[in-house]
Design a protein around this nucleic acid. Structure first.
Length: 717
RNA sequence: GCGCGGUUAGCUCAGUUGGUAGAGCAAUCCGUUUACACCGGAAAGGUCGCAGGUUCGAGUCCUGCACCGCGCACCA
């Protein structure tokens, strides 16, 4: 407790959030039993007999730079829940961590090196490149951690994890081996999404579709060929091995089964005419030139009809077939060559402009080139030995049964819809930063495990999809595969709070990994927040230059104010608009509660509100009862994840009921006075999860408060 | 094409099981010997997208439509 003189002086000045917030955060970090790390953020240090655990794992931010407003929103929601539960007497654990974000991080560093030194990763070599990336990741990590602290996150730093550290690597390798032994992971030569820019495969859900104008060409392979076909990519046609028509399409029935040898732009091709249900009669000419090596659908058609798969485009999106006119040319150049050739031969029948969705790589922006490659896959449709179900079913089951609830509920449908369309998951990547595929080769022999049996074995060159490791986040952070005490105490976790945009990429994979490895669920509740937008409704982004930096806001208005602006009126699953003006409004609110405290304490000094002196009055009892109802209402909102209402209600009560009316009346009506301190004490408690710093600071100067607010009990109803 | 959301005050959005429309910001007027001008008071502002239906009663439930946004699939 500070001495009263300092208190008065402090309260006489307007509230200074910047100075207070960093000081208060340190106070928390150093709180609790001495010699124990983590302060009261560490559940082991919490006082009292706390039987029930409440756990949130922080979705680990990518170590690719700095945090943005979206992180601030996520952290605020998580921390609000955690602080509320801590006050409710739970053994509360909030685990922090960061994500190595394989492709995102590597491509960022590659870009930098290219720009500054004009070198590629191959110029540097694997070892040197990794050193550079790790140095960048380390620096990025440090920035991010200090930012998370600025946000006021009450997470247990003694349990901090990284998706690519040693413990998480053991978890990854353990899972890989288990899945391999169960026949769920296989290596296969299949068509994959190749990113020529990033020089790696990517998963289906890492593709971003962009609508672009393209030309649809209709032509025949040769004058003698009986059927015309349409394509936007004539350059791939040198890899065709069939023309497919619908079985019911009478126009072409007579040709089905016939085969033709053709010289197409100088490349000899062999075309068989086949009938396949997949072909739409009404699109183009109703006939599809089948290019098995460069189209997902065509690859599947080739499976059914046993067609040859001729690769004509390489990893650099350059032609690997044809004579001088084509060989080594970029696909776009080759396209022109072929169109010219078609024209000169009189084969081109039609050229029309169409809109087409083109797949690009999420991280590098490269145009996806479907290519056949030898890769590692997770089979999502194979029955797991001894379990009688598939991984797909594991992903679906807990949401169907209601063991896992998504907030808002309507995202359930989206989730199921996604699972229905799910194909085998390509998990290998040709980048260097990440968990290396735990497979070793010696001649024809193959070894799968955590470490090579001996130095003669050569490890697989590839690394794993970053989501393979983040899928294990809820249990790898708790020490799995070791059967730790933490794992027994804190898993399944309670709430996963994240953005709706990674429902599939991450949430579904966590359900998969936990169901498969622990025969359990990763969490009970998924709380999805929306995208942070500017006051004009535009998505905040670097390129648009409309981003608001949460750290800047913390300096300007205080992080408590920023947190409130992100919470109030922000319903789950809905995008939220944030402006400096809104944040400023809550800075004023922080100052308001500062001054309310000053008023009450000054009043108290003049005229002690000790019950023996003034005693409770009928009027004060009524006000306290009225406030109990508000407390009950807010508590119910907190229990039901209605933080947008809870935060607004306490704000509204404090300002427009307590300050504007009750305090004002107390100036003339002494019978109201005994209500002031009890109500205000509880208001500060209720406000704490939302605005932790200013409330902790006020708490320290309130009478009769001998411990920190962070471990105070939530007001009883 | 399939699916999901939205449409409420000038702007940004709440409105939890149907019961007389709410907040913040902005704009208007008044107020400063005061806990706080980072303030207080007052007034103003809405046929709750459109059309039907259920109901004693609909912003809320049902049907259809329009527009905006998003996801998935297709994209020869």
């Amino acid at each position: 407790m500070e001495n009263p003189k300092n208190i008065a002086e402090k309260l006489l000045k307007p509230y200074d959030p910047t100075e207070t917030e960093s000081r208060i955060y340190k106070l928390w970090e150093e709180s609790g039993p001495t010699m124990q790390p983590g302060g009261f953020f560490n559940p082991d240090n919490l006082p009292g007999n706390r039987e029930k655990a409440f756990t949130i794992v922080m979705p680990p931010p990518n170590v690719t730079g700095i945090l943005h407003m979206g992180h601030a929103l996520a952290t605020t929601l998580q921390d609000t829940m955690v602080r509320y539960k801590r006050m409710q007497g739970f053994k509360t654990l909030y685990i922090p961590g960061t994500d190595h974000a394989a492709i995102a991080t590597q491509s960022k560093v590659e870009k930098e090196i290219k720009k500054n030194e004009n070198l590629s990763r191959h110029d540097l070599g694997r070892e040197e490149m990794l050193k550079r990336i790790e140095a960048f990741a380390k620096q990025s990590h440090d920035t991010i951690i200090s930012q998370i602290k600025t946000l006021g996150a009450s997470c247990d730093w003694s349990r901090e994890a990284f998706t690519l550290d040693e413990k998480r690597n053991l978890a990854v390798n353990t899972v890989f081996k288990k899945m391999y032994d169960d026949g769920l992971i296989y290596r296969g030569n299949r068509i994959v999404n190749w990113d020529p820019k990033g020089q790696t495969t990517i998963a289906d859900d890492e593709i971003v579709y962009e609508e672009r104008k393209a030309k649809l060409y209709t032509f025949k392979y040769s004058k003698d060929f009986p059927i015309s076909i349409s394509t936007t990519r004539p350059e791939t046609k040198v890899g065709d091995s069939a023309v497919a028509v619908h079985p019911d399409d009478t126009r072409y029935t007579e040709f089905v089964g016939k085969e033709y040898n053709i010289e197409f732009c100088g490349v000899p091709i062999h075309i068989k005419i086949i009938a396949d249900e997949e072909v739409e009669k009404d699109f183009g000419t109703g006939a599809l030139g089948v290019t098995p090596a460069h189209s997902q659908i065509d690859w599947e058609i080739a499976d059914r009809h046993d067609l040859p798969r001729i690769q004509v485009i390489n990893e650099y999106a350059k032609m690997m077939a044809g004579g001088e006119n084509l060989l080594g040319k970029k696909t776009t150049e080759a396209r022109e060559v072929i169109v010219e050739w078609l024209k000169s031969e009189g084969l081109l029948e039609k050229e029309e402009e169409v809109n087409q969705n083109i797949g690009t790589a999420e991280r590098t922006g490269g145009i996806i080139e479907p290519l056949p490659k030898l890769q590692w896959f997770v089979n999502v449709n194979k029955e797991i030995p001894g379990r009688g179900k598939t991984l797909k079913e594991i992903m679906r089951e807990p949401l169907e049964s209601g063991k896992i609830k998504i907030i808002p509920e309507y995202f359930n449908k989206t989730y199921f819809h996604w699972i229905e369309n799910l194909r085998d998951w390509c998990i290998s990547r040709q980048i260097w930063y990440g968990h290396r595929v735990p497979v070793w080769y010696k001649g024809e022999e193959i070894f799968v495990g955590d470490k090579a049996p001996s130095s003669e074995w050569v490890q697989d060159e590839d690394t794993l999809d970053t989501w393979f490791s983040s899928g294990m986040w809820t249990f790898s952070t708790l020490g799995w595969p070791e059967q730790t005490k933490d794992l027994a105490t804190y898993h399944p976790t309670d709430v996963l709070e994240t953005g709706y945009e990674i429902l599939f990429a991450w949430v579904a994979r966590m359900v998969l990994m936990t169901g498969y490895n622990l025969d359990s669920i990763p969490f009970h509740t998924v709380y999805l927040h929306g995208t942070v937008r500017d006051d004009k409704g535009k998505k905040m982004s670097k390129s648009a230059g409309n981003g608001i930096d949460p750290t800047d806001m913390a300096h300007k208005f205080g992080i408590d104010a920023t947190r409130m602006s992100l919470l109030v009126g922000n319903t789950p699953g809905t995008d939220v608009a944030v402006s400096e003006n809104k944040i400023k409004g809550y800075k004023n609110f922080a100052n308001k509660i500062w001054n309310i405290t000053r008023f009450i304490l000054e009043n108290l000094a003049v005229e002690p509100l000790d019950s023996k002196l003034s005693g409770p009055t009928a009027k004060s009892e009524d006000l306290i009862n009225e406030f109990k109802k508000v407390t009950a209402d807010i508590t119910s909102d907190m229990e039901n994840y209605r933080f947008h209402l809870a935060s607004e209600k306490i704000y509204h009560y404090i300002w427009h009921r307590f300050a504007d009316e009750i305090i004002e009346q107390s100036k003339t009506d002494a019978e109201i006075k005994p209500a002031l301190l009890p109500i205000w004490t509880d208001c500060i408690k209720i406000l704490h999860p939302f605005m932790p710093h200013v409330t902790e600071e006020i708490w320290s100067i309130m009478p009769g408060t001998d411990k920190l607010l962070i471990i105070e009990a939530w007001p009883q109803i």
